[in-house]
Design a protein around this nucleic acid. Structure first.
Lengths: 221, 221, 221, 221
DNA sequence: GATGAATGAGTCTTCATTCAT
DNA sequence: TATGAATGAAGACTCATTCAT
């Protein structure tokens, strides 16, 4: 709640609440995202979402008609904008295959893995059983296109002889996995364990990139 | 409420000799595992667990004092036996580094990824926020040791010159990730998507093994 | 809660000279009447009342201090004016008993049964349990006087020998009932049933009048 | 609640609750009927229904899946049995038309107007706007057949010359109205007014019968 | 005055847990 | 031991009422 205790200075007037129609939905979505990611859908109370957003429970219902719609809004509003920025960077690039591939992984981490989209990934993996439609949507709009983009990058490298031939589609799946796993872990097991036992994301990412490029090295050259 | 106070969680480290009598319905644990994995802890009703196990709700309480203890029992009872079998196979082997490494991944998939332990992994990733102790337990007893085992195998290959030198610890993390991710996906997004859009586990595994070995190839030979 | 404590109900007997300024939206009262009659007091949302009247919810509170006062105002404002017009017609008449009696029923239907007062009747019958004071007010100001007026008309006919003697007071009750029932039905069951299954009010009224006069026929003449 | 205060005699054991699967539904329906009739559907809290039936709120949901189903069950369970008994009496009779007609009214009052079906009538009239299906059901199963039965009785009397000809269908409507109105009033306005201002049902019924028979008298005889 | 965003008490409904049978 | 009826605390959602704009 925003300052409902009577202010000490009688002349000044602390309003019991403010009117902030424009910013409320975003604040609510942010609060909901945090809690859904941390606790899961069922274990998150709307009361907590509201109070974390600094409003009362009733206010939440002015913007979202029920808990489920809040959930889908959280997913919808977070996915597309972030994803768009990531893809732009890759598609515009004219770097060489190896550099492009490295750029892909580093950009994914920067624009997805290290952002709140990582929370969305954890959330959807956790809730797929309860929200199959959302999971399917996420697969079709995020996972699949991202995998295809990666496959494209690899395929280009093979075609120009920089990379050795291999099962491109499968490799794309295999190589997305560590990034996604690390993103999910950061909202899950990693956040439960002492820092010194965790693998720092940067070292993880560097190693991943190095291993991918090593695995692609063309022995003919 | 789901217990989030770490100290409140009943003993995960209960030694195995404290197992209750053999007659205790393992069906309850199996039913609970299925439902917890599919729906998550909070969204699973004990009524459903009981009826899936073919008993009444009251009976459940004869064996588990509450929902939380059922949860920890599900985790405890599933992890250690399966894990043990997996490690035995690796530790006893006297194969060459490359074969041993390949064997490691294939054995992990056979004894973990393709068994109900994969469900446990999904469950713990999902519930880490609500059960940090369980997550920590899982990290310490499963993830960390497995990673160390993998690191050991890699390190041996490097020492004898079969593999090129690299950041062994980081590589172990990176290379566990695809297996774990695939295991988790099989209980999550994969189960929501049409079969033809999924990557078959075998092809995924084969590719992973091939890519790992390629990345390890020692250019000096 | 709906007020059931008799003393809590704001003044129904507020004299008419206390009416607020003419500009007060009669639309609010009209909207409230419609909705209260159709749905009942508790099931009617002030939001709906306001939007039906074409104003915002807040505006409603400029004219009525709360829901209950709106309810009593709806009753108060509708009853007395309409009733007055009906009584005038009867009291002034110098027709013969039979014609006067027929006139009574037809005027009642025209000035009450076929007007929005019929809705008030339905509303009060429905809400008597929650607003006993309002029900009592209605009984004292409307039902009882109307019954006495009818009794007077009958009694006059008996005295001059046009009608046969009978239990006048009871007959007045019995003969008011069909009119009131029909009025109530028109806001209740009738409005739910296909038109062809309903008894048209005019035929109902004609028959009622005919039966009353037949029952009063003096066999001595 | 049934005796949850610890009993004074330590040796005796007062159970916190009893198992009464068989009788619960009827008790709940009876409590619900009372409250729905008195307050209406929306203003009735399930908590009150439950506690009037001597159980907790949760118990109610063991027998009725929600408030609406409780409402429809109240209507359904009360209507048909009572109605059946009333019709039997009329259909079997071989009395003369006048006696039969008188019997009809007196039986209706005894089996409907003076029983809890009178409450149902008030309830349905009040809630027709919110439950049009229930209102329609009531019209088709109760009001219409009853009206037809009455019409039949009148028609028989006309055919044998005991009654004078008239608009039978309309008369049936008109003559049912006082009975229904009195039944409804007994749960509404009558229960709010001092006894001495009410018309006693018996006097009302006697007068009604007398007036009906007078109106039917055949002048040709 | 008029508006409608914000509030929070109240009600329906669910479900982990208890306990009479 | 096994059952499932009963409980009651908790959480989703509504809506009368307030008040900043």
């Amino acid at each position: 709640m925003t300052a409902s205790a009577p202010s000490a200075q009688p002349g000044l007037h602390t309003p019991r609440w403010e009117r902030r129609k424009e910013s409320r939905p975003a604040e609510l979505l942010a609060a909901a995202l945090d809690l859904f990611v941390e606790r899961g859908y069922a274990a998150t109370r709307l009361d907590d979402v509201a109070s974390r957003a600094g409003v009362s429970k009733g206010t939440l219902y002015l913007y979202f008609s029920n808990k489920e719609e809040l959930f889908t809004a959280v997913v919808r509003e977070n996915i597309l904008p972030l994803l768009a920025r990531f893809r732009e960077g890759i598609e515009r690039s004219d770097a060489e295959p190896a550099a492009l591939l490295e750029g892909f992984f580093r950009a994914w981490w920067a624009h997805v893995g290290a952002t709140r989209l990582s929370g969305i990934a954890k959330l959807i993996v956790s809730e797929a059983g309860n929200f199959p439609d959302v999971a399917r949507f996420f697969h079709e709009e995020v996972i699949h296109p991202t995998g295809e983009l990666l496959a494209l990058v690899i395929r280009r490298g093979i075609e120009c002889g920089d990379f050795r031939p291999l099962d491109v589609e499968a490799a794309a799946h295999v190589w997305m996995a560590p990034l996604v796993m690390k993103a999910i872990s950061s909202h899950s097991i990693d956040s439960c364990c002492p820092l010194h036992e965790q693998m720092p994301p940067q070292r993880f990412l560097d190693t991943h990139v190095e291993l991918v490029l090593a695995a692609l090295r063309n022995p003919r050259r």
